[in-house]
Each structure stands twice: as C-alpha cells, then as structure tokens.
C-alpha cells in the first residue's frame, strides 16, 4: 500500500515522477518517492523512462573533458572500496570461527589494510596518551575530567579513550576521543588536519563486523564533535574509530571511500591501572 503522498491514478503517478525527475519535490515528498521507486517496480520503470527521455535533452550539451585527476580519484576510491569489502568478508568468516573479543585484533588490522606497521594496540595507544600529558593513569587527559568515566554494569567506573593518529605519522596524535560519563563520545582535535574546502571529514566506528564501518557523522576539524550515547551506541575497548576524507555531505556509499585521515581504537584505562 502506497503512502498518502503517492497518488492512486497512474497519470498522476507519472506526473509526480516527472516532477521527481526534475528535482522539484520537497525533501519529505522526495524521500517518499525514492522509497516508492525502491519498492515498486512500476514506479521504477516510470522513473527510469522519464530519465531516459531527459537524456535526449541533456545529450545536447557538449561533453566536458574531465581532468586527469578525476579518473585517478575514482580508481583510488574503488581500490579502497574493494579492500573494505574484502576485509568485511574476512571479518565475517573470522568472527564466525572465533567469537572472543580478543581475537578481533587481527581482523581489525586486516581492515586497516594489514601490514601497515601501526601499533594500534592498547600498549601504544596508552603510551601516546601518556606522552601527551598532563597525564598519569590516575589523572585525566587534557580536556577530560576525572568524572568522565562510564559506569560498568557492576558499578566499576570504566574510563575509555582513543588516540587517533595519521597513517603517515603514527607517532603524532591528531585527535583524542573520550567516552563521557553518560556514554557519549567527545572528540577533540590535537593537531590541524589538512583538507580541501569542498571536502568533509567523516567519523566512523566499527562494532559489528557484519555491518562493517558505521558512520557517526561529519566532524568539524576545528571545534571537534560530541556525540550522545544514542548516536554512538555501545562502546567497548578495542573498538575502532576512523576519520576519512569524503565528498561534501559525506560518503556517497555509506562506507568510507576516501583517504584515512586519522585512526585509533578505544582503550580501557582501568585495565592499565590494574
């Protein structure tokens, strides 16, 4: 059954899809129509027919030569997409075999491309946290209050941080992620990240290997970002955080497509204390 926004009459439906082809629908109606096209073959046929008709018009525009860099960008994104897809398949197989959380580290490294030589384990992350000072295992990180701790179900405070580094210079922390007492995540920039003005920085996390990387939204490279517990979902030590360079508005595929700008994973500081 169609939504009330979709007319019953075939002629009206075709007119609606004509307006959709022109991009004239308001956002709510546009979303309805795109969903309708997804589920209704007849709507998809009518929509494609309008688009095909318009090709006879847009083909009158003289072709524009693309810059040499366009294909290189597409090719690079494709390589990354295939790597991401292949490692997700690896991960699904791996997790089916071994359910223990501790066995996820090799998979995570594979997702990162494997063999990067990055010490992304808790040891190096903690060492980096300590280098950043003022910090001691019992003192908060800069910008972090001692209360910034998540209560575990048994009442113990769990303090988790992640240090995000660049792949080119893994010794230099670029962002610090703190888990807030309410279970949210606060990301603070520690070094400037270069990006073209027409590109966006998108934050990702990985919790479900079947699902693959999940977007947490776009990041302001200067102000940072604070996410609520609802936005980020549950967090656990070892969980990966990654920032990538994406087109304006974010990744077109729902998965990372651009260069990795910073990457790191959550570390439970209590485990360090004990």
């Amino acid at each position: 059954m169609n939504s009330p926004l979709i007319p019953e009459s075939p002629e009206e439906q075709n007119l609606l899809l004509g307006e959709h082809a022109l991009g004239l629908l308001d956002p709510e109606r546009e979303a309805e129509v795109r969903a309708w096209i997804e589920r209704d073959d007849n709507a998809a046929r009518m929509a494609l027919r309008w688009q095909q008709h318009w090709l006879s018009v847009s083909d009158r525009l003289p072709p524009e030569p693309a810059s040499d860099s366009l294909w290189k960008r597409i090719d690079a994104s494709l390589v990354r997409l295939k790597q991401s897809s292949a490692t997700r398949d690896d991960a699904a197989r791996h997790d089916a075999d071994q359910a223990s959380a501790s066995t996820k580290a090799p998979w995570l490294l594979r997702w990162l491309g494997g063999g990067l030589g990055l010490g992304l384990g808790a040891g190096l992350a903690l060492a980096l946290v300590m280098q950043m000072g003022p910090f001691s295992p019992s003192a908060p990180l800069e910008g972090t209050s001692p209360e910034m701790a998540t209560q575990t179900p048994d009442g113990d405070a769990q303090r988790m941080v992640a240090i995000l580094q660049t792949l080119e210079d893994p010794g230099t922390p670029t962002w610090v992620a703190n888990v807030t007492p309410s279970g949210g995540l606060q990301l603070t920039p520690k070094a400037s990240i270069e990006r073209p003005t027409d590109r966006a920085i998108e934050l990702w996390t990985l919790t479900d290997p079947q699902e693959g990387p999940r977007s947490l939204g776009l990041v302001d490279p200067i102000a940072g970002i604070e996410l609520s517990a609802e936005q980020i979902g549950s967090m656990s030590p070892g969980q990966l955080l990654e920032m990538t360079l994406e087109p304006e508005g974010g990744s077109p595929t729902g998965k990372p497509t651009g260069k990795i700008l910073a990457i790191g994973r959550l570390v439970d500081l209590n485990q360090r204390d004990s």
Partner: peptide
C-alpha cells in the same frame, strides 16, 4: 526495469 544509461544518469 529500464535503460542502464538512464539508471547511471
């Protein structure tokens, strides 16, 4: 459901 070129555009 329709023309591949229309789908791409």
């Amino acid at each position: 459901l329709g023309n591949g070129r229309a789908w791409l555009f």
